[in-house]
């Protein structure tokens, strides 16, 4: 574990992912076009902007979940560690092991808590019981769920509270040791207290994982983000308006639109 962290730390300043002129079409209609953006390793990148501006669509391109939606077309380039992933020879399955996703609505499988984590591990080749148990325990501790559920690991995950479910989903993604974690408004379906717990958890991932988070909550973006990207709809198509460090986006925006949005005048 140590060694992989070391290698990751040494790469911190490099972009882990980079998109070039990325566009997504649903049939003939464009969801967003021409997004060029770096995603830095070990940092938290927050995608902000009003509803329907293509943030979530952008996120789902990054691990090719768009493959599952019929009639979608992705144009442009996405590189992960300098490998082009928008390439038919790239296995989307192997890609998604390295780039995990957390959805807005927590979606634990209808299994026990233990099996929710063991199932993806087993499918990716880890079968030994003691190794499974160890990995599951460390990951659950990592997301702060261990003390809450250690006595009922073998009961259904569907009986957990909303916040616990979301943390379980994060644990389920983390247990596969991804390099990049994509979060699509992970707190918006939760009550304020659970939301705070999940937010602290996400902030604690900084440095160990590359995180991209879509959020409607500007305060949240400011609290936990290192970089921020503002998306906006122009002529019914989503566009990347401005990209920069959180500091710069919130205190010294280059665009008037950004200034208006972060100050609550537009949006």
């Amino acid at each position: 574990m140590k060694k992989s962290q070391l290698t990751q730390n040494s790469r911190l300043s490099l972009p882990s992912m980079q998109t070039e002129r990325l566009s997504l079409y649903y049939g003939k209609k464009a969801a967003f076009t021409d997004v060029t953006m770096p995603i830095y390793s070990g940092k938290i990148t927050a995608l902000i902007g009003p509803s329907g501006c293509g943030k979530t669509s952008f996120l789902s391109c990054l691990n090719r979940l768009t493959d599952l939606i019929p009639h979608t077309k992705v144009v442009g380039s996405i590189r992960l560690d300098a490998v082009e992933i928008l390439n038919n020879r790239v296995d989307a399955i192997a890609l998604r092991r390295r780039v995990g996703t957390i959805f807005q609505k927590p979606n634990p499988f209808p299994f026990s808590i233990w099996k929710n984590l063991a199932f993806p591990l087993k499918e990716h080749g880890i079968k030994k019981r003691e190794q499974l148990d160890r990995l599951i325990e460390t990951t659950l501790q990592d997301v702060g769920l261990w003390s809450e559920v250690k006595d009922r690991l073998h009961t259904s995950a569907l009986f957990l509270s909303g916040g616990q479910k979301q943390r379980l989903c994060i644990a389920r993604a983390l247990v596969l040791q991804p390099e990049v974690l994509l979060l699509d408004e992970p707190c918006s379906a939760l009550d304020p207290i659970s939301s705070g717990v999940v937010e602290d958890l996400i902030a604690s991932l900084r440095g160990r994982y590359t995180v991209v988070i879509v959020t409607h909550n500007l305060a949240q973006a400011r609290r936990i983000g290192d970089y921020a990207a503002l998306f906006w709809v122009r002529a019914e198509v989503g566009r990347l308006i401005e990209y920069g460090t959180v500091e710069q986006i919130f205190t010294a925006p280059q665009q008037d639109l950004t200034a208006a949005y972060v100050n609550g005048i537009r949006g």
């Binding site: 992989s4 020879r89 296995d91 990716h124 040791q177």
Partner: peptide
Amino acid sequence: MTLFNNKNLSPSQSDL
């Protein structure tokens, strides 16, 4: 220790 050494992204055939 890295759990998943497999970093290549070549496709699997099982789904086909």
